[in-house]
Design a protein around this nucleic acid. Structure first.
Lengths: 230, 230
DNA sequence: CTAAAAAGCTGACAAATATCATATTTTAAA
DNA sequence: TTTAAAATATGATATTTGTCAGCTTTTTAG
């Protein structure tokens, strides 16, 4: 155990903020905290998760293996995110795999406690419902982009997204995320070589700077126009 | 008004089955029934839906316009489906457009009634939540397919899906759905010509029969293998 | 019923993307 | 530190997919 949920700021970002003080104390008492090193698996496809994870720090990738044997990343997670509610709600094994991209600190809240709160606290349930509705809307947008945009457009959009969401950590400091070229390819759904090639092209056109794994966007406007199809 | 919800079998297929008898009577009294002719718009992007639609009969396509001006179909709806909960839960205008593929009969339940039931009946809320979790899982699968499968594989998968889900109506009779070649292209995310070309190829290979709009799958096995990447 | 419009179809070609091969650089392990 | 393995990079080429053009068939409106 590491710290109390009542004092943890991370919960402010997710549905746990809808819990009452008493519920939060109960959660705090039954939760476990876990360190997941870069590259380690938080949970895998087909696993019974039996609870939800609340991300305290670090970055993770959530993916699903496709028939052709390539992992497709369907979500990225960072501090404040809650993951596992879906499998929990439907009482199913996980259909996704979560791997740490950077070292992560996560709290695990057992299923029973979450289900109890869902039953007893309508505010909590509505909050989970709202979050799921937002996720579903985002998923629809991703489907449209995957279906209709070129790889180049998707890469441009993804670079902007990563800059917005993962360039700084919870304290606003510059964060060194460890997304590999393969990760980026698996986000946009293309071959690793294609992703690398396009990154080189963007670099040549001075849209971005490449410093090892760190990608700095230097021409937001051009990337944005590209992503939206100019 | 056309019939009472209490006696409508369609509700058995969706979250409305979680309502109590009293709630159902209230719903029945405030709902309105609407006929939507083939090609007509049920609701459009940016519109305040202000309620949910329960589909009694017919088939509809749910799509989103992409930046490049092409509609991407993200969902197909038929009898028993409920649509509009997402925008309702998040109190947002619709991000999607729904158009009738065949003549439809739909019931509209006003927002206030649905919100009231969500607040008062935890079983209903949990049911909506479960359905949304299922939709989210499906959306993830679509993302993976869009990103990782070829157009040919996606067409094969879509033909099987349409055969399973839309070949027969609510009474088990053969249903003549009116999906155009363009609709099919907009489901799999490709150019209409490409979809047509591949359909011709599948016909030549005796995977399917083409009789006007009606597409009959005659070699499920081959299509399945193709879709899964043999 | 008939004309016009829309949908369906096919070919030719161009553009986008994947694959394979190989070299270079970076990272991790001994 | 040294060495092996992994990640990154780039070229050559094959495959897939999109676009444009023209034609035929089907549907719709008058």
């Amino acid at each position: 155990m590491s710290g109390k949920c009542e004092q943890c700021l991370v919960r402010k970002f997710n549905s746990l903020r809808a819990l009452t003080k008493e519920e939060l104390i109960r959660v705090s008492n039954c939760k476990t905290t876990k360190h997941v090193k870069k590259g380690e698996v938080l949970f895998d496809e087909g696993e019974h998760i039996n609870g939800v994870y609340c991300i305290r720090s670090g970055v993770g990738k959530v993916s699903k293996m496709s028939d052709n044997g390539r992992d497709q990343i369907v979500n990225l997670i960072k501090h404040g995110d809650l993951i596992g509610e879906r499998s929990l709600v439907n009482n199913e094994v996980s259909n996704l795999k979560a791997v740490a991209v950077n070292d992560m600190e996560v709290c695990f809240i057992p299923k029973e406690e979450v289900l109890r709160d869902l039953e007893k606290n309508p505010n909590f349930t509505m909050s989970v419902l709202k979050n799921m509705a937002i996720s579903l809307k985002n998923a629809d947008n991703v489907i449209v982009d995957m279906a209709q945009k070129t790889v180049k457009q998707r890469l441009a959009a993804t670079l902007l997204f990563l800059e917005d969401q993962f360039a700084k950590n919870e304290d606003g400091e510059v964060m060194e995320t460890n997304f590999s070229r393969e990760d980026i390819a698996n986000i946009i759904g293309t071959a690793t070589e294609s992703a690398i090639r396009l990154l080189s092209e963007f670099k040549k056109k001075k849209y971005i700077e490449l410093k090892g794994k760190k990608i700095n966007v230097i021409d937001r406007k051009s990337l944005k126009e590209l992503a939206e199809g100019f």
